[in-house]
Amino acid sequence: MSITPASAQDEPPSLADRAFQQLQDRLIFLDIPPGAPLNEGRLSQELDLGRTPLREALKRLESEHLVVTYSRRGTFATTVDITALSEISQVREVLEPLAARLAAERRGGDARAQLEDLRDRLDAAGNDWLDRDEALRWDLQIHRAVYAAAGNSHLRVTLERYSNLATRIWCVVADRIPQLQEHVTVHRDLLRAVLTGDAEEAGTIMLAHVRDFETQIRQVL
């Protein structure tokens, strides 16, 4: 039995799930700035969502370290803790290559179609420059597909949490980082390795990718 809510797999996402995804996205990409208050009433209207599913979504976001709720003050987007970067990277350096290797061993498993689609779209995109948000969204999408392909729901949930936090950190410093061009090539190679079942190569590429990510951020801190 997977720990992923059933709604994420076979059934259509619930209202709370959709609210969660939307808010998560806005928090990661800093559309809701770190430290900003989240007004339940306003969100409820904006997302066209009842208070109960909204609170469910906020609870999940809190467990993802994206919001924090104080009993009398309300809910706020967490501040971005750049010093957590090194801790998060240490965990990712172990788990991301593991996910890549497992995904390759399964040749994409249940997520194979999704990975092929991403590869096709990457090929079609060529080497055009991507703006910051686009590049980061690609990155997140590809990582998430790899996590899904690894076939371990606990691994996936853990890695999603950390890649979200890492992306958010990236967004905070992104203005100071030049184009993310190099990531496009890395992603192509990674997808190819996973789809052809080359586990060792997939693991190697992923490890280099995660380390490179951290190095780039450190250079502009």
Binding site: V91, L98, N152, H154, T158
Partner: peptide, 9 residues
């Protein structure tokens, strides 16, 4: 699944 993660962490 849990063991796989623990083996690595």
């Amino acid at each position: 699944d849990v063991s796989e993660l623990r083996r690595n962490l």
